[in-house]
Lab assay of single mutants.
Amino acid sequence: KVKIAGPGLGSGVRARVLQSFTVDSSKAGLAPLEVRVLGPRGLVEPVNVVDNGDGTHTVTYTPSQEGPYMVSVKYADEEIPRSPFKVKVL
């Protein structure tokens, strides 16, 4: 029921550039959304989540370095389908 889309989860994500993606939970009811961005060697990146007021949230983060990242998206305390997402930061 929760959908996710945006360039911040795709290929070609650049280090030190603001990345974003949208989480659409409009068909999933009200529940807490939790997003974690883990970088190389367990680095935890700050994440900004904005409630758009229409059942969607815009998530932004800036990867601080190149390497493999994991983006975990939980809704109602459960990983959404395909989460955690593997993101290769260049």
Rank of each mutant, 00 (worst) to 15 (best):
S64L: 10
G29Y: 08
T62G: 01
E34R: 12
V13T: 04
T62R: 09
G39V: 00
S11G: 09
V44H: 15
H57T: 07
R16E: 12
P46M: 09
S11T: 14
V2E: 01
V13P: 03
P7Y: 07
G39E: 02
P32T: 09
V73P: 01
A28H: 03
L18K: 11
V35Q: 01
L33A: 03
S20V: 13
H57V: 05
V87I: 13
R14W: 08
L38T: 15
R41N: 11
H57N: 07
P32R: 12
F21D: 00
G42L: 07
S64G: 09
L18M: 12
S25L: 13
G10C: 11
L9S: 03
M70L: 14
V71I: 15
F85Y: 10
P46A: 12
Y69P: 02
T56W: 06
D24T: 04
L43I: 13
V47F: 06
E34M: 11
I80V: 11
P32K: 14
R16S: 11
G67R: 00
V73G: 00
A15Q: 12
K74Y: 11
V49R: 06
P32G: 09
G8F: 04
Y75S: 03
L18T: 13
R41D: 15
V50R: 11
T22D: 07
R16G: 14
T62D: 01
V89I: 05
A15G: 03
Q19Y: 02
K88P: 13
Y75T: 02
K27H: 12
M70I: 11
V23H: 01
S11V: 11
G10W: 05
V35A: 05
L38V: 15
S11H: 15
R82W: 10
V71E: 01
G29C: 09
V87L: 14
I80M: 04
K3T: 13
V23M: 04
V50Y: 11
H57L: 05
L33I: 10
Q19V: 02
S20I: 09
I4E: 03
R41Y: 12
V37A: 05
R36C: 13
V47D: 02
V23P: 00
V49A: 08
K86R: 15
R36F: 08
I4V: 11
S64R: 11
V13N: 04
Q19N: 08
K74F: 11
K27I: 08
G55A: 10
D24I: 05
R14C: 12
K74G: 01
F21G: 00
S20E: 14
V50S: 14
V2W: 00
L30Y: 11
S26V: 06
K88Q: 15
G39T: 06
K74N: 05
K1R: 08
I4R: 00
N52V: 08
L43W: 07
T58H: 13
S83G: 06
P40W: 01
V23N: 00
A31W: 06
T58P: 01
V89D: 04
V23A: 03
L43H: 12
G55E: 06
S72E: 07
P84C: 02
L43K: 14
Y75V: 11
P40L: 03
P84F: 01
D24E: 04
P32H: 15
E78R: 09
L38N: 14
R14Y: 14
E79P: 09
V23F: 02
Q65T: 14
V37K: 02
S72I: 05
L43S: 12
L90N: 14
G6D: 05
E78Y: 06
K1C: 05
T60G: 06
V44K: 11
K88V: 13
A31Q: 12
G39Y: 01
H57K: 09
Y69Q: 03
P81E: 08
V71L: 07
L33R: 01
K3S: 13
V73E: 01
R14A: 10
K74E: 03
V59E: 01
V47I: 10
R36G: 09
K88A: 15
G42K: 10
G39F: 02
K74M: 07
E45K: 04
G10A: 08
V87S: 01
V47T: 08
F85W: 12
G55D: 07
A76E: 10
S25D: 04
G12Y: 14
E78A: 08
I80S: 03
G55L: 11
P68G: 14
T56G: 04
E34G: 09
R36T: 14
V17A: 08
G53D: 11
V35T: 03
L18I: 09
S64T: 12
E45A: 07
P81F: 04
T58A: 12
M70T: 15
P40S: 04
Y61S: 02
Y75L: 08
V89K: 00
L30P: 12
N48W: 06
T60Y: 08
D54T: 07
R82H: 14
V50N: 11
Y69K: 00
T56L: 12
E66K: 06
G6I: 04
V13E: 03
V35Y: 04
T56A: 06
G12P: 09
G39I: 03
L90G: 15
K1N: 06
L9H: 03
S83V: 00
K74H: 07
V44P: 11
E78W: 04
D77E: 10
I4L: 06
N48D: 12
L18A: 13
R41A: 15
P84L: 02
G42H: 10
Q19D: 00
G12R: 10
V35S: 00
T60M: 09
A15E: 09
I80G: 02
V59G: 02
K27L: 13
P84G: 01
K27G: 13
G12D: 12
Q65H: 12
S26M: 05
S20T: 14
L33F: 06
Q65V: 14
K1M: 15
K86H: 15
D54R: 09
V49E: 04
G67M: 01
P40Y: 01
A76C: 07
D24M: 04
T22P: 00
A28T: 05
S26C: 06
P46F: 06
V71N: 00
G6T: 04
G39N: 11
V44N: 15
P46G: 07
L33G: 01
P81D: 09
G39A: 07
M70V: 12
G29H: 10
V37F: 00
L30W: 12
V17E: 13
T56V: 12
V59R: 00
G12V: 12
G42Y: 05
V13W: 02
F85D: 02
D77Q: 09
D54N: 12
L9F: 05
P46C: 08
E78P: 00
P7H: 07
P81Y: 05
Q65W: 06
R16T: 14
G29S: 10
T58G: 10
A31T: 03
T60C: 08
P40F: 03
S11E: 14
Y69W: 04
R14T: 14
Q19T: 13
G67L: 00
S83P: 02
L30T: 15
N48Y: 11
T56H: 12
L30N: 15
Q19A: 08
S64V: 09
V50D: 14
V13I: 08
E45R: 04
P32E: 14
S25A: 12
G53N: 13
G6Q: 04
K86E: 15
D54S: 09
K27Y: 07
V47G: 03
T22G: 03
F21C: 00
V50F: 15
L18H: 08
K74C: 07
S26I: 06
D51Y: 14
P68T: 14
S64Y: 08
S11Q: 15
G6R: 03
E79R: 03
P40V: 05
A28M: 04
V23G: 00
K74Q: 06
T56Q: 09
Y75D: 00
P63R: 01
V87K: 02
A5G: 15
P68A: 15
P68W: 15
